[in-house]
Every structure is written in structure tokens, then in C-alpha cells.
């Protein structure tokens, strides 16, 4: 069986993978910033809440989280659509890992910068938004880019809860054709191609953050 026949169903799956990746990366980034800033610079109740969230999701398996949401949750609560389940689990996961990146970058801004902010009488909130975050943002971009690529690859786990993503399609095709080598080779190539595009996108975003920072400076 030739690649041209395998490609259309795989591309259909790849489209689902792209949708999952983009949605959960964007949602995850929002979670990462909220939880990271809460844990790194928030009042203690928020800090505790953020820490609990981060440690639970960093400390448990994504696959088991998916199974729990898909198979266990409906027994005690609502049944959620598998695609939405996948988005929720992936977002919460990348959010937890990303939060640690955000927190680490905030903490890496030298103490002297905080002291200068105190000496100029900035409030804690002004210090965070005007002094600390703009310096931390460029530092967190490369590790966040890595997480986005990690997230793309993690989406393959959602095939286990019946979402017809790229991995799901590949398994179906293999069962149908018993032709493992072309099916999985093509699948790997497709993941690699998507990762390349994503990495290029993240590098662009990284550059934009730096240039944006300098634009702020120039506007003063």
C-alpha cells in the first residue's frame, strides 16, 4: 500500500493533533502565567492554591489523568466530551510545568532590582508588572517553547480516550493494513514536521517579546 493512500487519513488525524496542541498550549500558557505569578509573587492563600495545583499535576501521570477524567469522573459527576477532556488534561499539565518556568524566571530577577523599586516607592504590584515581569519574560520564552513542543508530543496520549488524532489514525491504519513500517514512519515524519513549525513559531514569539520590550523602552 502506497503512502499516497495512507496520507489522507493521517492528515485528518494530524489536523486534530494541531487543534489539540494549539488550544491546550494557549490555555496552558494562561494557566502557567496565573499559577506561576501566584506562586512566585502572590499572597499566601493564592500561593498555597497554586502550589497545590502545580504539584498535583506535575506529580501524576498525564495518561492516568486522562483516564480519570474520561472513565472515572462520569461515575461521580458529569460526562465530558473526549476532545474537551483531552484539552482540559493537556492544558492543566502544561500549565503546571509552565508555572514553574514562570516562577523560576520571576525569582531569577536580581534582588537589587526589587530594592531599587522599593527605593522609588513602587507598590508591590507596580514592581511586579513594571520592573520584574518585563525582565523575566524574555528569560522564560525558551523553556516555554520546549514545553510547547513537549505538549505537541503529549497529545498522542489522547488517542487512548478515543480521540481520532494522528496517533489514533495511525493505529487504525496499521490494524487495517498490517503495514507497520510505512504507517509509523509517515506518522513520525508528520509529528516532526509539526514540531518544526511549532519551534519556528516559538522562536518568532521569543524574538517578538524581546523586540516588544525594546519598543517599550523606545517609547519612553
Amino acid at each position: 500500500m502506497s503512502g499516497t493512500l495512507l496520507l489522507p487519513p493521517l492528515l485528518t488525524g494530524a489536523q486534530v493533533t494541531v487543534e489539540l496542541t494549539l488550544t491546550s498550549t494557549v490555555l496552558g500558557a494562561m494557566l502557567a502565567f496565573s499559577a506561576g505569578m501566584a506562586r512566585g509573587a502572590g499572597p499566601w492563600p493564592l500561593r498555597l492554591f497554586a502550589a497545590t495545583y502545580i504539584e498535583i499535576f506535575r506529580g501524576t501521570s498525564l495518561l492516568v489523568q486522562l483516564f480519570w477524567l474520561y472513565y472515572a469522573l462520569p461515575l461521580i459527576g458529569p460526562r465530558i466530551d473526549p476532545f474537551v477532556t483531552g484539552i482540559i488534561a493537556l492544558s492543566l499539565n502544561i500549565g503546571a510545568y509552565g508555572a514553574e518556568v514562570v516562577r523560576g524566571a520571576l525569582l531569577a530577577v536580581p534582588r537589587a532590582q526589587h530594592e531599587a523599586a522599593v527605593a522609588l516607592n513602587f507598590t508591590a504590584r507596580q514592581t511586579l508588572w513594571r520592573i520584574i515581569l518585563p525582565q523575566a519574560l524574555p528569560e522564560m520564552m525558551p523553556p516555554l517553547g520546549n514545553l510547547a513542543v513537549q505538549n505537541l508530543k503529549d497529545t498522542s496520549l489522547v488517542s487512548m480516550i478515543t480521540i481520532a488524532d494522528l496517533t489514533f489514525r495511525a493505529q487504525t491504519l496499521r490494524n487495517l493494513t498490517l503495514n507497520s513500517i510505512p504507517v509509523y514512519s509517515l506518522t513520525l515524519l508528520l509529528y516532526f514536521a509539526m514540531a518544526l513549525v511549532l519551534m519556528a513559531g516559538m522562536r518568532g514569539l521569543e524574538r517578538w517579546v524581546r523586540i516588544k520590550g525594546q519598543g517599550d523602552m523606545a517609547r519612553a
Partner: peptide, 24 residues
Amino acid sequence: VFQNFNLFPHMSVLRNITEAPVAV
């Protein structure tokens, strides 16, 4: 005035000086 200056590296000289008067 600190020993190591502690200027804000992401802001121009002008913005280093105007940021607090405007914000605070």
C-alpha cells in the same frame, strides 16, 4: 543611590527616570 546603580536594564535612561514619577 546604590553601590551597583541598580538601573532598570529594560528601560531607556529617560524611562528609568520618568517611570516612578509618573507611576508613583
